[in-house]
Design a protein around this nucleic acid. Structure first.
Lengths: 138, 138
DNA sequence: CAAACGCATGCAACTTTGTTGCAAAATGAT
DNA sequence: ATCATTTTGCAACAAAGTTGCATGCGTTTG
């Protein structure tokens, strides 16, 4: 894992620092999405709030992670797949949020179906969120 | 419109008060979605911030409005269709958010296409957001 | 239509969340 | 090891959202 983390950072021309390693580690460990609060709690002892904000911001810009809008308007972040590049994301898969345990899962295999928009609308990015119960909670 | 507003409130067993009337009026006038900030600005003189929060909260609980998650994680609210009831919403239409003017439009005619979820997941609610350029801004 | 009850509002204080500027420390290149 | 650059932590601040309580308004009842 250590090596994987280093590679991700190097590939994105980011210096390898403690907070970046730790936060990436968290993302790799949980194969779901993390709220800012989650990250802050798990790193709170070691890193400043501000550092967490800035690290996430950096990862977003580099396309390492992406945000997931949720119905209750909390902020969630998740790792992007390899083919995400700076500026343009290719994470158009469906996100599932469990009502019970609150966990957010990237359904990487499920691509968002096409929809026909009324004339005049020029679509750019699609997001789809499904809420319900996950395997464990049903 | 006055009558329509009264009816909505009565139907939901809510007392007819100034702030509720005004906020409903705003929703009816803009046939898109409103951010909390929008509402606060347009009513700021007359009502307290706290009242706006509580009014929106009440409307949410009664199923008069629903929230729309946006890619930049701001909070948007929009009127529900008539058949929304307390607890269970039926607003599964697509929402379009314009990158340019920021306006959010309910594409009430476009229903969210079905997706097959991996085994074990029990879906409850679907949300779909498309960002891009609207008719005016393209 | 008046009185009384209960709910909604405004205010103040507070918590949480996110941002900015700057000095100190850590990182990577030489 | 040294130096330039980037990252971090701190402090202070700004914005967003919450809570408790006293007052006032809307609704109901007689």
């Amino acid at each position: 894992m250590e090596a994987q983390i280093d590679e991700i950072l190097r590939k994105n021309q980011l210096s390898v620092t403690g907070s970046r390693k730790r936060i990436l580690e968290l993302f790799l460990a949980s194969n779901g999405a993390l709220a800012h609060g989650d990250i802050e709690k798990k790193t709170g002892e070691k890193f400043d709030r501000v550092t967490v904000y800035r690290t996430l911001q950096t990862f977003l810009e580099k396309g390492i992670i992406h945000t997931i809008p949720t119905p209750d308007n909390s902020v969630l972040y998740a790792l992007c797949k390899d083919n995400c590049t700076e500026g343009h994301h290719h994470d158009n898969h469906v996100h599932f949020i469990c009502r019970e345990c609150g966990k957010t899962i990237c359904l990487a295999d499920i691509t968002i179906p096409e929809v026909k928009l009324p004339g005049g609308f020029l679509p750019h990015e699609y997001q789809m969120i499904v809420t319900g119960l996950c395997k464990e909670c049903r």
